[in-house]
């Protein structure tokens, strides 16, 4: 049974269709990226999965249970870290679990240590660099009890070096603590490097246009981005995205 199943999801705002018959699924422990031009309704999709807004048509189900308009069924990591400035890093990473009512302090401490944030445990967010803040934000979503984590362009505000470092880090943590992940990005290379599968959305109204299975073995090394195979995939994905804007 798929972890998350999206079935013919449609949503419009003020008569303008943003999502149209979007259908895809995520298997347990699978890393799926959604790639699409900016403004293609990726955020709307997250709002629907997160239960903040209701779809006009279609079904969203998690573990076989319908979660249309049901808040708190997924764990979420926003584009900006959105750490709470008055909480220490340790208190911050516990927030997701706290909201769900399942606080586990020893697990949080252990996780921070693994993530290389041990020394920042009692620091406040402003004392951390952007990359470190994003790490804390990811740990926060990893410590939340929900089975699916949705990441909304989490590295888009970081510089190129930090970004590739973060991708490596994300994969290493994820390999140890497997979860189903839905990752939204507009960076082709990032999607290729991280995912098991890439879903390409078309421009307004968004629709699933193509799906690519990415067969690179894990654990993945940074060097794969320079291989012939990687470039072939990149070209294919790029053409698929490009075809869209031409249409």
């Amino acid at each position: 049974m798929p972890e998350l199943a999206i079935d013919r999801l449609s949503k419009s705002f003020d008569g303008k269709m943003v999502l149209k018959d979007v259908t895809f699924h995520i298997e347990p422990d699978e890393f799926v990226s959604i790639l699409g031009p900016s403004g293609s309704g990726k955020s709307t999709l997250f709002h629907l999965i997160g239960g903040i807004s209701q779809p006009d048509e279609g079904e969203i189900s998690l573990d076989g249970e319908r979660i249309n308009g049901k808040k708190g069924s997924i764990s979420y990591m926003p584009q900006s870290p959105a750490l709470f400035p008055w909480r220490t890093i340790l208190q911050n990473v516990l927030l997701g679990a706290e909201i769900a009512g399942k606080k586990d302090l020893p697990a949080a401490v252990a996780m921070l240590e693994k993530a290389g944030l041990k020394e920042y445990e009692s620091a406040y967010p402003h004392q951390l660099s952007g990359g470190m803040q994003q790490r804390a934000a990811f740990i926060r979503s990893l410590l939340s009890p929900q089975p699916l984590i949705c990441l909304d362009e989490p590295f888009s505000a970081l510089d190129e070096f930090t970004r590739s470092e973060m991708q490596q880090w994300l994969l290493s943590i994820w390999m140890e603590h497997r979860r189903s992940i839905l990752f939204i990005t507009h960076n082709i290379e990032e999607a290729l490097f991280l995912s098991d599968r890439i879903i390409i959305l078309s421009d307004k109204p968004a629709n699933v246009k193509a799906e690519f299975d990415i067969p690179f073995p894990r654990p993945r090394d940074e060097s794969i981005v320079l291989t012939e195979e990687f470039l072939t995939y990149k070209k294919a994905v790029y053409n698929e995205l490009k075809a869209d804007s031409g249409a």
Binding site: K71, G72, Y76, P78, A100
Partner: peptide
């Protein structure tokens, strides 16, 4: 608004 959005998505 970021923090508020997070809280809502987290089901607070």
């Amino acid at each position: 608004s970021d923090m508020m959005h997070y809280m809502k998505m987290a089901g607070a």
